[in-house]
Each structure stands twice: as structure tokens, then as C-alpha cells.
Design a protein around this nucleic acid. Sequence first.
DNA 1: CCTGTGACCCATG
DNA 2: GCATGGGCCACAG
Length: 104
Amino acid sequence: MTRPQPDFASAVLDLVAEIPPGNVMSYGDIAAALGSRGARTVGTVLARSGADVPWWRVIRSSGHAAAGHEERALEHFRAEGTPLIWAADGSAYRVAPSARWAPR
DNA sequence: CCTGTGACCCATG
DNA sequence: GCATGGGCCACAG
């Protein structure tokens, strides 16, 4: 009964809210799950109305957290036990591919 | 209705 | 793996 919502923004927020703790989805995956390719639009929506959803569970295709919000996302990841992969120098991290989730 | 903008993605070198 | 260039799409004014 998942059909295209009237409001793309609402659909994004709903889907993000369904991502289980410890799991993540990329912007592109969310857009694709909604039958669209507007990965940027997903980011724009979260930037505007994502304050009330677990936005930190939405990452880039590279595995890095939202640009400019890596610090806050890290705190949530550590609290949820999300598998992370740290750079050799420990200056950066990325979410492990195994943490990726998809709606059913 | 038209234009600018963006918490992006992919192909290429 | 990084840098560059082009493309996609919905929202706001």
C-alpha cells in the first residue's frame, strides 16, 4: 500500500522515520525507493523539514554522513551502535556497507 | 509561470 | 583514491 505520496517531502520524512536504528540509507536510495532520482531534493527536504526525523540515518552513497553534520551524526551512530569504518589516520569515518537498509 | 538553489549522484580522466 | 564536469529533480520566492 505504499503508493506515491501526494507530497514528496512527506514521503521522504516517513521513509526516513522507518529506518531502524543502527541502519542507514543513502539519499539516492531514498529517492529511488520513492520512484524518483532527485537525490538532491531529498537533501533539500531534510535540510528544511528534517528536524523531526532521524536525518543522521541518511548518508551519501560514499558512506559519509551528511556534509557539515558529521559530528552530530557520529554521536548518534555511536549511541546506536552503527558499524563504522575509520580512516587510517582516524580523521574521518564512514558507515559500513553492512549497515545499509532497504524498505520492504 | 520562470528561475535559482541544494544535508546529491554518476561518469570520466 | 581524488578532481572535474554534467545531470537530475522537487521546493521556495
